[in-house]
Amino acid sequence: MERQAALLLLADGRLPAGGYAHSGGLEPAVTAGRVADMAGLEKFLIGRAETAGLIASAFAAAACARAAADDLSDLETLAVELDARTPSPELRKVSRDLGRQLRRAMSSIHPHPLFAALGDAPHQPIVMGVAAAVLGLGPRDAALAILHENNSGAAASAAKLMRVDPFDVHAILARMTTRLDALAGQAAVAAEGAPGDLPSPGAPLSDIAAEHHRRRDVRLFAS
């Protein structure tokens, strides 16, 4: 319980790690006409949390557990496993772009030798896991931080993409808090197993939409 403030720091969308430039797939979904109202937004966010969110949180938790034990020998395997769970090359790139930015931010905010050991382009969940460990947080905290950051970031982008009442958007986030807690718990349990057994729920429309989005001339968000 003593590290709660560190968790808030890591999960805060104002952490200067580039998250604000991404809509978590909401912009492509709105452009394709698949999300048009609050009910659609809520279903989108739940689907995203249950798929990409669960994967990211399990990998963050796994990286955190390994970093906390000072054993980074598995990190390359984790990166390969995460690539295998991300069919879209665009989403693999986004994950590595965000990972690089998060590492840059954390190296400056709270320097630690582990950040340098992450290689050129580490995935965002893996950096999040290592950052959590460096701040004295546990695997479940790492899972919750990335779930919350990714979820609230996508929700916040709704204000720029759709006609929404911000209170309605936050009502969705409030309803999702129990779900995120449960997913973080699931991620922390999975993190104790072998990298190959980590969850791999797919999100076909997110992969397809991300590839369309990259090719659009006019877009507000990078992804």
Partner: peptide, 28 residues
């Protein structure tokens, strides 16, 4: 799940039905 030379190449699970959540949304 497909591995090549022992390393993961592709690993995707699809879940749907009343016991799962979110699959009917625009992300999935």
């Amino acid at each position: 799940r497909i591995t090549r030379g022992g390393a993961a190449l592709y690993d995707q699970q699809i879940d749907f039905g009343p016991a799962s959540d979110g699959w009917g949304g625009a992300a999935v």
